[in-house]
């Protein structure tokens, strides 16, 4: 059964079920449970927001405590300083992160769709072996790759360039796995055969027949890849030394190192680190809020099969 078919088949039944559930009254215990979870998962984020509104003094020695606002509401000055400090390097880091995440994410997803389709719909020599290799690769420790990748890219004179971040992040074996699983079910062979009978070439068949069917999985893999690239820290940390190319994670890491050693020339960076962390999580939070149906729809692929 295809996932698409599953969800559409379920939809009517589910709506009926939900309608009845809603009538069946309140669920006190589950709601208390959820409430506790929400509090737990939100406390650090609440703290981040509250801390962003404090000046440095309030941050470390404030009277109101860690989880409530200080007398002095300094969010706006903090933001102003964040965006102007060091000629606005923060905005550049944010832009870099966005660029790396989208370029790496889109690239990785395109490769994953092609490869997943290839694995799912073609028989060829070395297929099973390659696929086993692909799945095994998930277990490779990152540290084993960072050093040799650095050497490799420096041979190509690509270290300390955007390519050193984007090219390695094109590798997303799990994305290929998801696409393979999805494509195997969602694209009926009959459809492909029919297109071929009509004289369409393999690539035309793929783009015109298969790809539209793969779109839900495409979007899920895209989201996963983008989040993966956005959260990436150690790869860019090892590859980049030019601060102008840093993504936001490495930039904030740099600030943290400098703040811990007080290297900011007589003014504390901690306030910037905290408000910078807050601003940096906003884009992904918005993306999550606006794209949540794709998360739900797409993630079922990998888990159902």
């Amino acid at each position: 059964m295809t996932t698409a078919r599953i969800s559409s088949a379920n939809r009517t039944a589910r709506t009926a079920r939900e309608g009845r559930r809603a009538r069946s009254g309140s669920h006190l215990v589950p709601h208390l449970f959820l409430g506790a979870l929400v509090v737990y998962f939100l406390i650090p984020i609440w703290w981040l927001f509250v801390a962003s509104t404090k000046d440095v003094g309030g941050l470390f020695n404030g009277s109101a405590g860690a989880l409530w606002f200080d007398k002095n509401f300094a969010l706006w000055p903090n933001l102003a300083e964040l965006f102007t400090y060091n000629d606005g390097i923060y905005l550049r880091w944010l832009g870099n992160s966005l660029f790396y995440a989208l370029a790496g994410g889109i690239g990785a997803t395109v490769l994953a769709v092609l490869a997943g389709y290839g694995f799912a719909k073609f028989q060829f020599r070395g297929r099973n072996f390659s696929f086993a290799l692909l799945l095994g690769s998930v277990m490779v420790p990152l540290t084993a790759l960072v050093i040799p990748t650095f050497v490799l890219l420096s041979e190509l004179k690509l270290t300390d360039t955007i390519w050193a971040v984007i090219l390695p992040s094109l590798l997303n074996p799990f994305g290929v796995y998801l696409m393979q699983v999805y494509a195997a079910d969602a694209v009926p062979d009959e459809l492909l055969d029919a297109a071929r009978v009509d004289g369409a070439g393999e690539f035309r068949t793929f783009f015109q027949v298969a790809f539209p069917l793969l779109r839900p999985a495409f979007i899920t893999v895209l989201l996963l890849s983008i989040v993966g690239s956005w959260n990436n820290y150690f790869l860019p940390l090892a590859m980049l030394s030019n601060t102008q190319l840093f993504p936001i994670t490495v930039g904030i890491g740099l600030w943290e190192g400098l703040a811990a050693g007080n290297n900011s020339g007589g003014h504390s960076l901690w306030g910037l680190i905290i408000v910078g962390s807050l601003v940096s999580v906003i884009p992904l939070v918005i993306a999550f809020l606006s794209l949540q149906k794709y998360w739900r729809g797409g993630l079922a692929i990998g888990s159902l099969k």
């Binding site: 060091n86 000629d87 606005g88 390097i89 905005l91 550049r92 944010l94 832009g95 870099n96 966005l98 660029f99 989208l102 370029a103 889109i106 895209l222 102008q244």
Partner: peptide, 21 residues
């Protein structure tokens, strides 16, 4: 949407005021 976001990011990265590199 994806392409325009990418373009926006590239622009942001390219013409940020970053210290006159």
């Amino acid at each position: 949407a994806a392409v325009s976001a990418l373009a926006l990011a590239a622009m942001l990265a390219a013409c940020s005021s970053g210290g006159g590199s």
